[in-house]
Amino acid sequence: MDAIIIAHGDLDGMTAAAITIAYLQYNYNLEKYELLFSQPFNLHETLRKIFQRATDMTFIIDIALDEEHWPHIKKELLDLIGKTKIIWIDHHRSTIQHVVELLEMNIPLLASIDGCAATIVGEAFLEKIGDKEFFSKLVVIGEVSDKVKSIPNTHPLKPIIEVLGNALSENPTDDDFKRKLVRTWLKEKTLVTDEAARRSEEAVERLKALLKEASENIIYDTEKLRIIDLRNTRVHGYAGKIASHHANSYKKITLLLFRVGEVNTIVTARVPENIKLDIASILKNLAEKYGGGGGGHPRAASARVPSTMADEFVRELAKKIESSI
């Protein structure tokens, strides 16, 4: 048996992918697998790339269905039907809302909004995997990194999760590094490699500089809302950490603006525990109005809009947030 795994490239997606691969190896004699990483906005492109590759099974893991690109995703899925058995594993509401359409295409959806992708595969597969103790650690790493579980600072996995998260931030588009890390988890049962430790150290220094720059680029600041504009700075991989730092330190909803290429602007949002607000729904609905897309979780989400409309989008977004809290 062989399989293609298409996963989100964060720690939740990576740990869920590793657990899924281990399950297939232990129970279905998985001889060969290919691990690819994708995002909601380019999943259709990834699916198109695997069209000519003959494989028994294809797993889509921890990738939220992007409404803007759903017609393209659906077309690529339909083209793959009959060539490979597709299974989608996800915890995002936008994907779950399409469960009937997926089933009509004979694509089962293993889903739950309680927890994250690592939670789902942990509950489904752990009991049928050798070395359950090690893979249980991967579940915790995925859950904590995705902020659906909290552990005390004294927990032995706490520094490991921090190192791994920092290592991914250092170069979030380096899929080869992610694949090597997953292979190490599967073969050597080692959570942190020397390369991950080195990247983490570099990322810590970079984050310090970016936090200082973020504090100097606050463009809107009220009692419960802060907006930071880093559109002239490369922050890819660090945006969530910067927004989380401001949200948690100052107890304010924090929006962070940055660019991806020349065409799109990303707004990353974080909501502190003291404020009740479903920021994912607000971002998603408003971004669609401006020809973009968005999603995530109630307290941690992002939106992508055309850069030419970013300022207008943020002004309206600020008004919606202020009127909702």
Rank of each mutant, 00 (worst) to 15 (best):
L230P: 01
R299D: 07
L211D: 04
I141T: 03
Y238W: 06
R53G: 01
R270L: 03
V263Q: 12
R270P: 04
G115R: 03
M57R: 15
I141L: 10
A54C: 09
L283R: 04
F134G: 08
P156E: 13
M309H: 11
L35E: 01
I242H: 00
G291E: 02
Y28L: 10
V99Q: 14
A117T: 01
E31Q: 15
L157N: 05
K212L: 15
V100H: 14
I242F: 07
V140T: 15
K252Y: 04
K75S: 09
E202H: 10
Q39A: 12
S244E: 15
T308A: 13
A197P: 04
E312R: 15
K83A: 06
I279R: 06
L24H: 05
L168V: 06
L255H: 00
R231G: 15
L109A: 03
G165D: 03
S307E: 08
L257F: 07
G240A: 08
A203V: 11
I325D: 07
E216K: 13
S302K: 07
A318W: 06
V144L: 05
E101G: 11
E316F: 01
P71R: 06
L11N: 10
E322C: 10
Y28E: 14
K85M: 08
I325F: 13
S136R: 11
W185P: 03
E288F: 05
S136K: 14
D90T: 06
V271F: 02
E123V: 11
N285C: 05
D56Q: 13
S136T: 14
L11W: 05
W88A: 03
F51C: 00
P306A: 09
S150M: 13
F51L: 12
N106S: 14
A287F: 02
V144Y: 04
V148R: 00
L110W: 10
